[in-house]
């Protein structure tokens, strides 16, 4: 299987461990990722919050590049980039006049023939799940996890086309496949505050504090994520939250692809643990996994 790959800015910066683990897992599963040539930023929250046309054009430029490269499927690990690319595609489909304006802004045609999928949507396809099942070398036995999807993996469904938008299962299926003691909880798609973190860290602390407390209530030992923004918001503020008594304990936040790589016995994943602010090694070694 060959798919175009849009890493997005986070995966080349704050979320390198997501990029690297995604590549490791895909290589092991025979999914060939072709990085989109000349990709640029999707515009993220800041573009759509302040300039509508700019936000559609910045995202659409990447869709047009994928089409130019004759790709059919474009995979995007970051939930925020995914939602921006999907939203641009949706808007251009719904509004032909806007589509015309965007094409002239990006100076490239776009016929709307690109299917944008999150990496977790690809990995959770039944035939890939079977491949993962047979490649498990180190089952994540006794690792108590909750999967956290956040907002932009699923919402709004008219744009993301995700059916189970209140109770997505992609990562839960993957965690169960690799033998984790995966827990259910009601906070899968609650908001972590997204892009408010830098200017309003008080909001981020409040929302991520609730999520971490609820993960603890569900008796989880780690939170599994698929979005760099969710990861940063949950991982980076735990010292302060603990000191203020807002969370019962610190808890590692892991990308789903890191845990898949670990279970599949890909040794290189070990180099990624030191990238986390909350070090996952004590937990993983207590389970005989690192």
């Amino acid at each position: 299987m060959k798919v175009a790959y849009y890493p997005g800015c986070s995966l080349h910066g704050t979320a390198e461990e997501y990029d690297e683990s995604t590549q490791m897992v895909c290589e092991a599963l025979g999914i060939e990722l072709k990085e989109l040539d000349d990709w640029s930023c999707c515009g993220a929250t800041s573009a759509h919050c302040t300039n509508d046309k700019l936000s559609v054009a910045l995202a659409a430029r990447n869709l047009a590049l994928a089409e130019k490269g004759q790709h059919k499927t474009l995979t995007v690990p970051c939930s925020a980039c995914f939602q921006r690319l999907k939203a641009a595609d949706y808007r251009m489909r719904e509004d032909k006049q806007l589509a015309g304006e965007i094409v002239s802004l990006i100076e490239m045609p776009y016929a709307g023939n690109i299917e944008v999928l999150q990496i977790i949507q690809i990995l959770a396809q039944p035939e890939i799940v079977e491949k993962i099942r047979v490649s498990v070398k180190k089952p994540l036995k006794d690792l108590k996890s909750v999967c956290y999807y956040g907002c932009l993996t699923v919402r709004p469904p008219k744009v993301t086309k995700v059916g189970d938008y209140e109770d997505p299962m992609y990562m839960d299926v993957l965690m169960e496949t690799v033998g984790a003691d995966n827990r259910f909880w009601s906070y899968k798609t609650e908001c972590c505050s997204g892009g408010l973190a830098m200017a309003r860290s008080d909001i981020t602390k409040r929302l991520s504090g609730v999520l971490l407390t609820m993960a603890d209530e569900a008796d989880a030992e780690c939170v599994v994520v698929s979005c760099p923004m969710c990861h940063a918001n949950l991982d980076t503020r735990q010292n302060a939250l603990l000191a203020e008594g807002k969370i019962p304990r610190k808890m590692p936040i892991l990308y789903v692809t890191e845990l898949l790589a670990l279970a599949m016995g890909i040794k290189e994943v070990g180099a990624l643990w030191s990238k986390h602010l909350v070090d996952p090694r004590p937990l993983l070694s207590s389970k005989g996994l690192a």
Partner: peptide
Amino acid sequence: RGKIKLLPETTRGRRAVKRIFKKT
């Protein structure tokens, strides 16, 4: 942890991106 880079990463299309900014 190497999560914030000293040097920027850029793309050949940065001029095209700049034109999008200008026109919008």
